[in-house]
Simulated scan of single mutants.
Amino acid sequence: MYLKNTLLTVNKNGLYCAAGDFYIDPWRGVDRAVVTHGHSDHARPGSRLYLSCKKSELILKERLGNRISLQTADYNSPVVINGVTVSFHPAGHIPGSAQVRVEHRGEIWVVSGDYKLEDDGLSDPFEPVKCHAFITESTFGAPVYHWEPQEKVYEAVNGWWSRNCMQGKTSVIYAYSLGKSQRLINGLDHAIGRIYCHPAVASMNERVRQSGFTLKECTPLSLKEEQDYRGAMVIIPQSSGISEYMRRFTAPEDAYISGWMQIKKMRKSSGRPAAFTLSDHADWPGLLKAIKATGAHRIYATHGYTELLTRWLLDSGYDASVLPSPYTGRE
């Protein structure tokens, strides 16, 4: 159900604040866009003006181009847009990710963007923000999703890599170029062997470091140089043109790492011999904990298992509804 006559509404361009005349994570180019983070389903090209968290500045320019008109603000530093107060607050999703707090005439809304509660040691940890209305993502908004502690996941990945290394194989793991790859680089045991990454990951690594985040070293892959990849770990986005690289690897063993891998059917459909469950989104308990911490009674679920989460919230006494979005939630 669409929001109407409220501080934030939805129109053909996305989530809109009429009082301030700006959009939050618009679906297409608009006059003024407030952006929660650098993933492509939230940071869309074509807007005249952008506003983001300072720590996301270089990442957004890598995504959208250096010539965008971008204003930034530190976490917890209010910006006034046409009488509406906007501020960014850590979301814990990826480096530079933020929730957006919107206040006007005593009414406070918070747009979560994407978030997770587990501190990954890289991104600024999630901070709950008190509000009257909370728009929450629900990528993994189903009771089946309960994450293991990340240390156990890293232990499993390192064990898989170590076994491959002893057999002289190249370990190839598919991970999103922004967020998951950097988290994995820091979680891997660098004593096992060399770690390489696709140029798309390497480019994001540089922007993440320049933004002030601590990231371990990782060697960019090169098609120009011959390398011996036996025993190495290679991090590569699945959507990349990877065939040229794969031909250079010795007896490659590949794996997929994602929150979706918690479901057996998804593991089988990935077509990979190995799969690991690690997500940059909140699991079911994390979503419920975050929602409760806001103190909000009005909750709007978007991006993911919206109907299921909304039904649970309604049964629990919240005023909850689904906020339509062209995106279903991604890893």
Rank of each mutant, 00 (worst) to 15 (best):
S52G: 15
E244I: 05
D120W: 04
G304S: 05
K292P: 12
V102D: 14
Y300K: 06
L313Y: 01
Y245E: 11
L313F: 01
I299R: 10
A175T: 05
W284V: 03
A98P: 01
G295M: 07
I299C: 11
V129D: 12
T306H: 10
A274E: 15
L287T: 13
T302W: 04
D283W: 02
Y16P: 11
Y50Q: 08
F140K: 11
N164G: 14
F88T: 10
I291N: 05
S97Y: 01
I257G: 08
G106N: 11
E331M: 02
Y176L: 02
K268T: 15
G38K: 09
I59G: 07
G271C: 03
S112V: 09
V79Q: 10
G295K: 05
S171A: 04
P128N: 01
Y305R: 09
D119W: 10
N11C: 00
S270F: 00
D41C: 06
G92Q: 14
G65K: 01
H93L: 09
K224N: 14
C17F: 08
G65A: 00
A320Q: 10
I257F: 10
Y145V: 03
R44V: 15
W284L: 01
P26K: 04
S123R: 00
L313T: 12
L278I: 04
A43S: 13
R183T: 15
G271S: 12
A301T: 15
I263R: 04
V84H: 05
F134P: 07
G96A: 09
D21A: 15
V111M: 03
A275L: 09
L49K: 14
A293D: 13
G14R: 03
M166N: 13
A232V: 03
Q238G: 13
A232Q: 06
D120P: 02
K216I: 03
T250L: 00
R101P: 02
V172E: 06
T136N: 12
T139S: 11
E137A: 07
A43V: 07
M166P: 07
G193V: 00
L51Q: 12
